[in-house]
Simulated assay, not measured.
Amino acid sequence: MDAQALYDYSPVLRLMGLGLVIALGPLAWVWLRRRDASPAQRLAWLTGLTLFLTFDLVLFGAFTRLTDSGLGCPDWPGCYGSASPIGASASIAAAQEAMPTGPVTFSKAWIEMIHRYLATAVGVLILVLASVSWFERRRLQQSLFWPLVTLFWVCLQGAFGALTVTMKLFPAIVTLHLLGGMALLALLRLQAVRYQQLLEPPSAHQRPGAGTRWALWAMFGLLWVQIALGGWVSTNYAVLACRDFPTCQGSWWPVMDFAGGFEWWRELGQRRSGDAIPFPALTAIHYTHRLVAYGVLLALAALAWHLHRREGRADQARTLLLLGGWQLLTGLSNVVLEWPLVAAVAHTGGAAALVVVLTGWLTQAHPRGVETAPPPTAHGYPA
């Protein structure tokens, strides 16, 4: 039996058609619900809906990774050259018969392809957003910079999705793919807030103090470091390197190989030399993520206290504490319950929610152009 080519573009038009069909649902919903609204209002709604679907896509991506379905279809963009597992049933059956516990099964193939369908639909929605922003740029007096960056970024995400498959779950690529999904959430959230600011009077925008803005940026940066470490834990399957808490392997400082654990460019399960990655290296990956998590939780608590006591933003403080508690609970569940699927997906969801929340607050804290923008009229257009 001939080996399947890693890239087979024969089903690409059918996949694009499926993505368009899926995207037509949200587009029709926004059009019907907001057909009498201004372009700015429709863009705000469509951006918010695309953000929601992208959040779902990030969670489904985590589900795909955690169910070992990333290679459910070993080629890209289709499945054995077909647009769905139905057309590839013979090839999938043969692969499953040859290796019953291998990466290719019917359920894994469907999970992988559904992820690709959703990703294509999100790409279509972002293309629509960029196109509408271009057509309405003069009327809305909005820059095209962020819509075009988002369009470029979703294309880049597609490329990383392809590399995830063709490079056989290469840890660095999979981690970058996760970070790219989080960055896509941030880009969409930024635009959603900008459109909302366009529809509100300038007096509605109250900037926090300089100290608070610096604190938000510091928290934002620390969060990205922790997400990268979490992605590295997941893609190297290092979650169960420590199965107890608060110690690891019964020790406060277990045997660890940091050099082996943080070799960035290497195959899954191997060191750069080609040797199998040792268990102390997996321990170093896990424990580093855990130690940084302590710092993140303390930083979240400190920022929540600052927002409540210094800025009078009690709702924002409660949101931070709630998300921090969620991450603590789901993170602990991954360890002591030995990585249950629900807890693992929920942990990714908590990180994604923190990205969305902090991006929104930072955008509101830096309302560039809002103070001098013309106020909207009754129809939502700038006067």
Rank of each mutant, 00 (worst) to 15 (best):
V342I: 15
D68A: 12
V225D: 04
G78T: 02
L140H: 08
W232N: 04
W361Q: 04
R14D: 06
R368H: 11
G211Q: 13
A183D: 00
D315F: 15
G161L: 07
C248D: 01
T175Y: 06
W217E: 03
E371H: 06
A346C: 12
A109S: 14
Q142F: 11
A130T: 02
L66F: 08
D257G: 13
G269W: 09
W214T: 12
C73N: 07
T247D: 06
G350H: 05
L341P: 09
Y80V: 01
Q142C: 10
G87Y: 04
H205T: 13
N334S: 09
R65Y: 08
A192Y: 07
E267M: 13
A299Q: 01
G70N: 10
D315G: 11
V30W: 04
Y237V: 04
V233P: 02
L190E: 01
K108P: 09
L322R: 03
V336F: 15
D244F: 12
G211A: 15
A346S: 11
G312M: 13
Y195D: 01
S10E: 10
V336G: 06
A159W: 14
G250C: 09
I86G: 10
T64S: 02
L118R: 00
R318G: 07
W339G: 03
R189Y: 03
E200R: 14
A353M: 14
L307H: 00
A353V: 07
G380C: 05
V296L: 15
G180D: 08
A343M: 10
G324H: 04
G61H: 02
F220A: 12
